[in-house]
């Protein structure tokens, strides 16, 4: 994903160790989405994506860190969010992004669904090297 200039003052970081932390992370994302001027529907989509990804970080990654910041492009403002863990990683990324595929007890909509809800999506993972998912939603 391209790097965009960030509003450093808006930067948020939430350690994810429990399902309560997932709630905190999505609340932090919502505050930034409101500040960035995302429409209500786009706020809802981004926060829902953050909820899916935060749960993955907790359940499959064994916990990790959520980071969020407001970013700017030439004429637009958006919210960048990333979830990183140092868990087992994803062996087959393409498969993991398929609707309905799950390694656990979920419905397999988390990753693929989150990707549909955002404007930019990047998944970095390798077996044993943890997973980082980065998403971006622009205000429009």
């Amino acid at each position: 994903m391209k790097e965009y200039p960030a509003d450093e003052a808006s930067r948020e970081e939430v350690e994810i160790r429990s399902s309560g932390d997932v709630v905190k992370a999505r609340q932090a994302v919502r505050v930034l989405a409101q500040q960035a001027g995302l429409s209500l529907v786009n706020q809802t989509k981004l926060v829902t994506a953050a909820s899916e990804l935060g749960r993955n970080t907790l359940i499959y990654g064994g916990g990790g860190t959520a980071r969020a910041v407001i970013v700017r492009d030439v004429a637009r403002v958006g919210v960048w969010v990333s979830f990183s863990d140092t868990g087992p990683g994803i062996p087959d990324i393409e498969q993991a992004l398929t609707d309905g595929w799950t390694s656990g007890s979920g419905m397999g909509l988390g990753l693929s669904g989150a990707r549909r809800l955002v404007d930019e999506f990047e998944l970095d993972s390798a077996p044993g090297a943890g997973t980082t998912v980065t998403v971006l939603k622009w205000a429009r």
Partner: peptide, 14 residues
């Protein structure tokens, strides 16, 4: 259900 929630749910795949 709020309209924004409904739109998001369907796009999510549910």
């Amino acid at each position: 259900m709020r309209p924004a929630v409904a739109m998001t749910l369907v796009e999510l795949g549910l």
